[in-house]
């Protein structure tokens, strides 16, 4: 049941990305190009997404437990640390160079575009490097909890 729910959420999420035009890298770059012909689409997409998700999260906070799972796994970190800042800067550089972030990149695999396939392979390699890096940094949080404790999303 959890897997089916998850599949449906992926389907709705991907439909939203496609309907809003956010699967198109050129359109995302149009939003990021504030010194050129600025395209405000992404701001409206985020506004629509935040309006609905914040209402949903308000409901979830009042829920004893999720319908299909034992507990809500809310991210619990509050500190703005070096890895958050460095990670966001690097992520932003990659996003600005390509116009692709992880959601639209995965969804665009459906187009079988060779450029997207290469992008996703490089993205997975980058994630793999980060995973190895974290395992070898002594200060890293206990490995068994790393995926949840360090990740906000």
């Amino acid at each position: 049941m959890q897997a089916l729910a998850s599949f449906l959420c992926g389907l709705i999420f991907g439909s939203g990305l496609m309907i809003s035009g956010m699967t198109q890298p050129i359109k995302v770059l149009g939003f990021l190009d504030v010194f050129g012909r600025w395209d405000p689409t992404l701001a409206f997409v985020m506004g629509g997404a935040l309006a609905v998700s914040s209402m949903g999260y308000t409901l979830a906070r009042r829920q004893g437990r999720p319908f299909l799972a034992a507990q809500h796994l809310w991210p619990n970190r509050k500190d703005i640390d070096r890895s958050l800042v460095v990670g966001a800067v690097l992520f932003g550089i990659g996003w600005g160079l390509s116009g692709l972030c992880p959601g639209p990149a995965l969804e665009n695999l459906a187009s079988l575009s060779p450029r997207v396939i290469v992008f996703v392979m490089a993205m997975i390699a980058g994630m793999g490097v980060q995973d190895l890096w974290q395992r070898h940094v002594p200060s890293a949080i206990a490995i068994e909890n790393a995926a949840f404790a360090t990740s906000d999303g």
């Binding site: 609905v52 949903g56 979830a60 995926a147």
Partner: peptide
Amino acid sequence: ALFGGGLIGLASALLMLLNGRIAGVSG
């Protein structure tokens, strides 16, 4: 843009309400 964004928000809300998870694609 607003409608598509609303669907993204709906998917994120449902993933928390049903499975208790954050809809972060990279995570």
